[in-house]
């Protein structure tokens, strides 16, 4: 008796299952457009723009699901090498060593420069200093200058803020400001430097601390902090889209996406979308400089 009941129940489940399968198949047929799943990881600098891109992309192609997570450029590149993501966002170029390791694992990273970014140096709003030279920044972040008084500010011990070592911005800043673009330089961030785990916590600390100075991707600049002008020989430029696009703002860099080999299928679709006018507009809206000249000039 019991067994017969069971069979009946099993039958019902079986039919339900069949129905489910058929409905899946039939709905598959009614798909208009491609379907798939894309995992994007990496740079915290790009993560907001990438999220926006993913949302817009999913509106256009409702059957492609795009997941975006941050963590830092290093995280993205490591994930690409470990095959746990499809696209790695990076605010720095891949290092030779990383490319070698990737190739050993059968992964050939392909680079796409998708936009440009300025690295802004921010200070508290009550800080009287507006302009910095690269050498001054170098001395501050390596700990040679420790008091604001030394460069014409108020008395106060300078508190330097940096991102964690997994950040591409950290790498960039280190190469450009700490090592002054000399690859063999042994200079390091002053060990007193605070290593914070996100760009947002750098903003919070600068808002709360009059003596703090930090750096971050230009997309994170907000009204609560002051982004200083940087330059040399009395020519100082603020970190704005205009000056980054013209190449006048010194601390600017390309942002890239890496894929494993030539992108195919939905991944190619996404990369193409990133380069499309709609995609580039997203970068502009999130505070970056679009790669296309015509877009950049519109801003002026």
């Amino acid at each position: 008796m019991l067994s017969i009941k069971n069979i009946k129940i099993n039958n019902i489940f079986f039919y339900l299952f069949l129905l489910f399968v058929f409905s899946c198949v039939s709905s598959e047929k009614t798909h208009k457009g491609p379907s798939g799943f894309i995992q994007i990881k990496g740079s915290d600098t790009i993560v907001n723009a990438a999220q926006k891109l993913a949302e817009n992309f999913m509106k256009e192609y409702p059957y492609v699901f795009v997941a975006v997570t941050g963590g830092g450029s290093g995280v993205g590149i490591a994930s690409l090498i470990n095959s746990t993501c499809d696209i790695a966002n990076a605010s720095r170029k891949m290092k030779k060593k990383e490319i070698e390791i990737a190739k050993k694992r059968g992964i050939t990273p392909k680079e796409f420069v998708v936009a440009y970014d300025g690295v802004a140096v921010i200070v508290n709003k009550n800080n009287p200093i507006d302009t910095f030279t690269i050498d001054q920044l170098h001395d501050i972040f390596t700990g040679k200058i420790t008091n604001w008084k030394e460069i014409g500010g108020k008395e106060g011990k300078i508190v330097t803020l940096s991102r964690e070592v997994s950040s591409g911005t950290h790498m960039y800043f280190k190469e450009k400001v700490i090592q002054l673009e000399n690859k063999n330089s042994k200079e390091e961030f002053s060990p007193q430097t605070l290593l914070l785990s996100s760009s947002q916590s750098i903003v919070e600390e600068v808002v709360n601390n009059e003596n703090a100075i930090g750096y971050l991707g230009m997309g994170y600049i907000c009204d609560r902090v002051k982004a200083v002008k940087i330059g040399k020989d009395n020519k100082f430029y603020p970190p704005t889209v205009k000056y980054v696009a013209k190449g006048k703002y010194i601390l600017s860099r390309p942002l890239q996406m890496y894929t494993n080999g030539e992108p195919k299928g939905v991944i190619k679709l996404f990369i193409d979308y990133v380069y499309s006018p709609q995609g580039q507009r997203v970068f502009q809206e999130t505070g970056f400089v679009p790669i296309r000249e015509e877009n950049a000039s519109e801003e002026n």
Binding site: A78, I81, N82, E164, V165, S166, Q192
Partner: peptide, 21 residues
């Protein structure tokens, strides 16, 4: 003073390392 702990180091840096490095 600011300082860095063992746990924060592992958590902060684990994500970026390539396994095997």
């Amino acid at each position: 003073q600011p300082l860095r702990t063992l746990t924060a180091t592992v958590a902060g840096e684990m994500g970026e390392t390539v396994s095997g490095s």
